[in-house]
Design a protein around this nucleic acid. Structure first.
Length: 534
DNA sequence: GTATTCTGG
DNA sequence: TTCTACCAGAATACG
């Protein structure tokens, strides 16, 4: 959003000013926006409309004009020259020279808007556009504008500690290797582990360049054979944290506010999710003890606030239950049972007391795999079990939840017939390779067909919740601010006076944003930082 | 610029 | 027989 306005204003403003202009423009734009049949002016935000109805076309005026109007607008190069250091700026030219170009821009945009509005109606995505995507714009602008406060001191003390850890791990790796090499180079790591130390005569190679694979998954399996492996893994964990989250992240803090203002893209991801960048706050570590500590640096804006995190519990599995209407899976959620343990009971044919931790772990992997349209091989690979056992697990799963098998068959058949699939709100994903003669390509597209309605409905659910939460916060004159969205989680600056009201309202909005027969569970947490709020 | 790897949901 | 789980951003190595 910021980039868009900064570009439009030809570098004449800084980020803060661009943000302010963006807020003002977007809000005016939306005042003009009415739903279908309301009789109000329908302002079409062409980029968003194009993302929904022409997702395969690049969202530039030239590409869209070619696709929608079969027309090639005046090229900007004819005015300011080719890209490069000699390229002029529009502001260098007399107004007369720019007039035709500028007028045509407005004309073409209006013509495209009219066509796009028709397309949205035709594809059944008008409500999605007017009632979900458009109202979300000012909500995202507000979140970008607010930002989240970052405590750089806590990051720098963590950085010193990790720097020591890196030195220690590095020394131990060289000691065990008997020589120095570049641990940052996957090729040299592969050479050390598989040529010099001969840790696995059947080591896998990468598809493109034939190097030895040294991914975490590969290394985990070798960890028991040689101490060097776990040291390399630890070295990688530490260098990753250092380079991405300790060296770079503090620089993204906006000095005037002391906060980090991520940018959200609404029209990029095919399934309908948001994308976060500059910095990406949707990939802040949580899975490892050391990594989690990064989250301690995300703190409330001042002493009157706390961090509130609200996240959907197993939302994609619940959506799979809803879409498939599988009685057994729905019943599991209605009873409030542990879905992974229940799945283990079913696929292993044991009672509740018979479920071991290992069974539950495997059942959990199967539950996730099903959402992605997994194959027996893929499951076997991930669980490090024989392929036949993987096949048995999937068979057992689909027999326990027959509705899921029907959902998969029905969805793939629909995709083959129509060339797209859709979410609960009618958001479409077009699958141009669904009828490919290449089996690998086709099967990959069939997995997309299975996964997209699930992932995309999750995106719709939280987007609609965000719109309602934002409206409630404003209407009630509350001081709590929504700050971040991480796919199934929302993060807030919670005002201390609203410690009861806000979480209750937010939970309610998240649970009821779309109608479900399956219970939707939201977990909230409050703390002095993002880690504590979990 | 592409490949590999790691971070998240 | 082959190739394998969905959606991403970003840092680093290497040619």
């Amino acid at each position: 959003m910021i980039d868009f306005f900064k570009d439009s204003l030809a570098g004449q403003v800084d980020d803060q000013q661009a943000l302010a202009v963006g807020v003002a423009l977007q809000k005016d734009l939306l005042l003009l926006t009415g739903g279908p049949g309301t009789g109000k002016t329908r302002t079409i935000v062409t980029m968003l409309a194009a993302h929904l109805s022409l997702p395969g076309v690049r969202r530039t005026m030239d590409a869209l004009a070619a696709a929608l109007l079969d027309y090639a607008p005046i090229g900007i190069e004819s005015l300011i020259g080719e890209r490069g250091k000699d390229q002029k700026s529009l502001s260098d030219l007399p107004v007369e020279a720019v007039a035709d170009y500028a007028v045509e821009d407005a004309d073409i945009t209006l013509q495209m808007a009219t066509k796009l509005a028709t397309k949205l109606d035709e594809t059944g995505q008008a409500r999605l556009f007017y009632e979900e995507e458009c109202p979300l714009i000012p909500v995202l602008v507000d979140m970008e504008f607010e930002g989240i406060r970052m405590d750089v001191d806590s990051l720098s003390s963590l950085s010193s500690y990790i720097q020591e850890q890196i030195g220690g791990a590095r020394g131990r790796v060289f000691e065990l290797a008997g020589e120095e090499f570049d641990i940052d180079s996957p090729r040299q790591v592969g050479h050390m582990l598989f040529e010099k130390l001969q840790l696995d005569p059947n080591a896998r190679r990468t598809a493109k360049t034939g190097q030895y694979q040294t991914t975490e998954q590969v290394l985990q399996r070798l960890a028991a054979r040689h101490e060097i492996v776990e040291r390399i893994l630890y070295y990688r964990t530490c260098t990753k944290l250092q380079s991405v989250y300790l060296d770079q992240l503090p620089n993204t803090r906006f000095e005037k506010t002391g906060r980090v203002h991520t940018q959200y893209e609404q029209a990029v991801i095919a399934t309908g999710r948001l994308q976060s960048h500059n910095p990406n706050l949707q990939t802040i570590p949580i899975r490892t003890e050391l990594g989690r500590r990064i989250r301690e640096a995300f703190v409330p804006r001042d002493q009157n606030h706390l961090i509130l995190a609200a996240d959907y519990s197993q939302v994609e599995l619940r959506i799979a239950a809803e879409l498939s209407n599988d009685e057994s899976l729905i019943e599991t959620f209605r009873r409030g049972e542990d879905v992974h343990a229940t799945t283990a009971m079913k696929v292993y044919g044991v009672d509740a007391d018979g479920v071991t931790a290992e069974m539950r772990r495997k059942a959990k992997v199967v539950n996730f795999g099903i959402i992605y349209g997994i194959s027996a091989f893929g499951l076997a690979d991930r669980l490090n079990i024989p392929r036949a056992e993987g096949a048995d697990l999937i068979d057992g799963y689909l027999n326990s939840y027959p509705g899921i098998r029907e959902y998969m068959d029905r969805t793939i058949a629909f995709a083959h017939e129509h060339g797209f699939v859709e979410t609960m709100t009618g958001r479409r994903r077009y699958l141009r390779n669904i009828n490919s003669a290449n089996g690998t390509t086709r099967r990959s597209e069939e997995r997309n067909a299975i996964n997209s309605p699930i992932q995309g409905s999750g995106a719709d659910l939280i987007k609609l919740a965000m719109i309602r939460i934002s409206r409630e916060l404003h209407e009630r004159g509350m001081m709590t601010k929504m700050l971040l969205q991480v796919h199934d989680e929302l993060v807030f600056d919670l005002h201390r006076d609203e410690e009861r009201e806000a979480p209750e309202m937010i939970e309610q909005a998240m649970q009821t944003a779309l109608p479900f027969k399956v219970p939707i569970v939201v977990e909230t947490g409050i703390g002095e930082n993002w880690l504590e709020a979990h």
